[in-house]
């Protein structure tokens, strides 16, 4: 039996834990979360071969860990540093524009066709939603705004106002369970301001 099993399992445990931290808890970048699956696989593999290394393989001495251990620590430092220290808190320049959007909700669409809404980063968006349907509805943009209009009864009006803080493609929906699936969803696109 070789001592490498123990070494590999410790390596996998570390890579798995650090990978999971980078993916889900570091908050450094949204795309890092795509690394979660492989990190969990590496962690599980590390857990599975740890008993084999411990019980049968023997443990490497601390000096044998010098080349690989120090190099990998340095590698992690070299990745972590630029991401953590050069990561500035974004400052959103408000464009000063307020975009008012009138929507009418019915069963099962907004404004009959679910129009695509395009705004720019920093715009103040003012949604006025009139519920022309026969059941309650609301309006939400998951991933962009935490707030919703609140549930609006039939023939009533609700409002939502927020400053757009992210670019990307989002979806506006009626967040009452089942309604979005029935068709109450449309595209909400945020572009970065043109210079």
């Amino acid at each position: 039996m070789d001592k490498g099993v123990y070494l590999a399992s410790v390596l996998f445990l570390l890579l798995g834990i650090i990978g999971i931290w980078f993916s889900y808890f570091s908050g450094l970048s949204e795309t890092l979360s795509e690394m979660g699956g492989i990190s969990i696989l590496v962690l599980i593999l590390g857990i599975m071969i740890l008993p084999i290394g411990l019980l049968k393989g023997g443990r490497p001495t601390s000096k044998e860990l010098i080349p690989i251990g120090l190099t990998l620590l340095l590698a992690l430092a070299l990745i972590g540093n630029p991401m953590i220290f050069f990561n500035k808190e974004p400052v959103i320049d408000e464009t000063g524009r307020t975009i008012t959007i009138h929507l009418v909700s019915e069963e099962w669409a907004f404004n009959k066709t679910n129009p695509t809404i395009k705004v720019q980063l920093g715009d103040r968006v003012h949604i006025i939603l009139f519920n022309n349907g026969t059941v309650p509805h609301d309006f939400a943009i998951p991933g962009l705004s935490e707030e919703k209009t609140g549930i609006i009864s039939p023939q009533a009006t609700g409002e939502l106002e927020f400053i757009v803080s992210k670019t990307g493609n989002f979806e506006y929906i009626c967040s009452i369970p089942g309604h979005a699936e029935l068709g109450m969803r449309g595209k909400f696109i945020v572009e970065s301001p043109q210079e």
Partner: peptide, 30 residues
């Protein structure tokens, strides 16, 4: 050979993790 192997391992980790990172600052151009 060992130095080469460890360097390769370190490079794979650095490039792979860095490839996932996209600056989250939404005010910048894509």
């Amino acid at each position: 050979a060992t130095g080469l192997g460890i360097a390769g391992l370190g490079q794979i980790i650095i490039t792979t993790v860095w490839g996932f990172y996209i600056n989250p600052d939404p005010t910048l151009d894509l």
